[in-house]
């Protein structure tokens, strides 16, 4: 009996187009409540930050202070972004 070898061809997505929600001053500077950001498949939050700043230079004045939330959780810079993730960017919070 032959052994079946199943090759799963995981094709790395070349580019991902991510829709990013913006709030408060981020939304004000970009003049939009959502923007699109293109990143390579397997991009980390750090990669995403660079892409965001390059593709949306209006956000430059606050880029260093932006939080990146993934699926309603604060992220770390080494976290990998999945194509299905819900991403939001916002400056320090001021509720209360």
């Amino acid at each position: 009996m032959k052994t079946a070898v199943i090759t799963v061809n995981v094709r790395k997505t070349e580019h991902m187009k991510i829709t990013v929600k913006l709030f408060a001053r981020a939304s004000q500077l970009a003049r939009a409540s959502e923007v699109e950001v293109e990143v390579d498949g397997g991009a980390s939050v750090a990669d995403f930050r660079k892409a965001l700043e390059a593709q949306h230079p209006k956000l430059k004045p606050i880029a260093g202070s932006l939080f990146v939330a993934i699926d309603s959780e604060y992220s770390s810079d080494d976290q990998v972004i999945l194509e299905t993730a819900q991403i939001a960017c916002f400056p320090p919070v001021s509720g209360g």
């Binding site: 709030f23 001053r25 939330a69 939001a88 400056p91 919070v93 001021s94 509720g95 209360g96």
Partner: peptide, 11 residues
Amino acid sequence: ELKVRVPIWKK
């Protein structure tokens, strides 16, 4: 904690 952690902003 609400004031540093919950994503709400005032203008």
